[in-house]
């Protein structure tokens, strides 16, 4: 804490911090604690997934067959690229280059938007095929499995929906960040918000890395995936 109790407190150092390093490490630890919370949130869904897949493996394979793995794979690639563009923004912030921050954020919004667009295409397809759980749901395959396939789609929509919701929130935050970045809100000394937001965005990517194989790829090897 070298610059503790200095007479003038820099503008990009909040009043209750003594040094940039303390501020940066606080921000990082806070974000990681928040992400630990997010991990547990999604874990609850994955626990449900594992339990019910163990109970109804056939229905899970049937449900997975209705998902288009090509769209899922496309979205995986899109989301990975958006993670990279987010890294680009953070590196820009590290270099104190606000153009890099702004472009990084714009590209991240763009790829995030493509992901959500593909998601809309997928969701509307499910709606047309009566695969959205609820009164609208109809199952034309094995009638005995109907209720269980509906559970698969229930989990599919909650898991991907919660994931998409996190992306929508993220895009909203980035839209606010762009003008701030342009006006030079983040300095080389304090770009903690950009870095923290980057962590959030990568976490969203992480969730998808697990969602993709376990939702889309269950039924590719013959009747496989199940038990």
């Amino acid at each position: 804490m070298s610059d503790a109790a200095s007479a003038h407190h820099p503008k990009d150092l909040a009043h209750h911090f003594e040094s940039y390093e303390q501020q940066k490490q606080s921000s990082l630890l806070g974000m990681w604690a928040f992400l630990a919370q997010e991990v547990m949130f999604f874990s609850g869904l994955f626990v449900c997934y594992v339990v019910y897949r163990g109970m109804y493996p056939e229905a899970w394979a049937l449900g997975s067959q209705e998902l288009d793995w090509k769209l899922g794979a496309l979205n995986t690639v899109v989301l990975l690229i958006s993670s990279f563009t987010m890294v680009y923004a953070v590196v820009g912030a590290q270099r104190g280059n606000r153009k890099m921050i702004v472009w990084g954020l714009i590209l991240t919004i763009l790829f995030g938007g493509i992901f959500l667009g593909v998601k809309v295409v997928e969701y509307s397809g499910k709606w047309e095929h009566h695969l959205v759980p609820g009164p609208h749901f109809e199952w034309h395959g094995d009638p005995a499995a109907g209720k269980e396939v509906e559970m698969f789609f229930g989990l599919y929509f909650v898991m991907t929906g919660m994931h998409a919701l996190h992306m929508v929130v993220g895009i909203g935050i980035m839209l606010v960040m762009i003008p701030l970045a342009w006006r030079g809100k983040w300095t080389k000394n304090n770009y903690n918000f950009v870095e923290g937001f980057g962590l959030y965005w990568h976490f969203v990517d992480l969730v998808w890395i697990f969602l993709f194989p376990f939702l889309y790829l269950l039924a590719l090897a013959g009747g496989g995936g199940g038990h």
């Binding site: 793995w69 794979a73 995986t76 690639v77 990975l80 993709f212 194989p213 790829l217 590719l220 090897a221 013959g222 496989g224 995936g225 199940g226 038990h227």
Partner: peptide, 14 residues
């Protein structure tokens, strides 16, 4: 990502 799609076509058994 390509690998995970590729191995999905192989049935390793439960």
């Amino acid at each position: 990502t390509a690998l995970t799609v590729g191995v999905a076509y192989v049935d390793f058994g439960h």
